[in-house]
Design a protein around this nucleic acid. Structure first.
Lengths: 152, 152
DNA sequence: AATGTTATCGAATTTCATACGGATCGTTAG
DNA sequence: CTAACGATCCGTATGAAATTCGATAACATT
């Protein structure tokens, strides 16, 4: 699907605040309410918008301690990979897990309350997974930018 | 603020789909529509929910090429740090930038169309920032888990 | 020029969010 | 023990929103 400028602006607005009403959107886009409605429905049907979600403030829910864990497997057989991936998605503390190129096989973003809870997570959960070689933890000191919004 | 089990389940549901109506939520939570409404308003007022957003499908908007860029500054003076941070937030390709401990100073998550576009981004944008020492790019091969939803 | 497709619109309808008043429950102060 | 308070709950009422519909306009294809 190709986007005209109205689509782009619409996506920009919805990525920023999906609770805007169609009337509010129609004013910002110089369109009728119905036109806005139908554009959104089309975008949704195409799968451009994958979901609408509420984002929580990490610091208010005791998840302000963010760690990037770089991780190697012992072997790269298909079986070991799929076993590891099946297990890691189950871990609630792991918000993101990417299979990557380079020195390490995976980069995990982990959110917990504090260092104590991270230690507990490492000892009782992460390092008990099958086929894990080495890990390297990098701790977040500060958050410079953190958006879910693409500029199209 | 402390959460009872209903609050936790409510946050779980809204993190997964914030377009659920209060009636749908009330059925899932065994509450009245009004009670759901008031719990949500309270949670919003406390700042637990920071925003409601539409999440886009990277692959449908030519942003499927994800790179983690680890980056060092030449010096760690307050001036250099704030200068770099001010510039990096302006870059549309950078969705996330975390100041971290360890061998590198920052971890950036960068989303572009393909390697060609990444090269262009590196050459014309990232490496032209002030005070950058070294960079190390790690490319995403696959996405194992990618959620914005905390389990409380 | 004729035709089919797509986007637009306003009006009508259905559904929702929100305000309100009152009931219930647990806690605290007297 | 009980009175009073705050927090939470409920159902109803209403204004606002989403959605449907039929008609018109724009646009591409033949």
């Amino acid at each position: 699907m190709k986007f005209d400028n109205i689509d782009k602006k619409l996506l920009q607005l919805l990525q920023n605040d999906c609770k805007l009403t169609n009337k509010e959107l129609s004013l910002k886009l110089n369109l009728s309410v119905t036109a806005v409605y139908e554009r959104i429905k089309k975008i949704e049907k195409e799968g451009i918008i994958s979901r609408y979600v509420a984002l929580l403030n990490r610091n208010k829910i005791e998840k302000g301690f963010v760690v990037f864990c770089h991780l190697k497997l012992t072997q790269h057989t298909r079986e070991f990979i799929s076993q590891f991936e099946k297990e890691v998605v189950q871990l609630n503390e792991v918000l993101e897990c990417f299979h990557v190129s380079g020195d390490y096989d995976y980069i995990l973003k982990i959110c917990v309350k504090d260092m104590e809870e991270y230690r507990e997570f490492m000892v009782t959960k992460l390092t008990t997974l099958q086929h894990i070689g080495s890990t390297h933890s990098t701790f977040m000191i500060g958050q410079v930018k953190n958006t879910t919004s693409f500029v199209i």
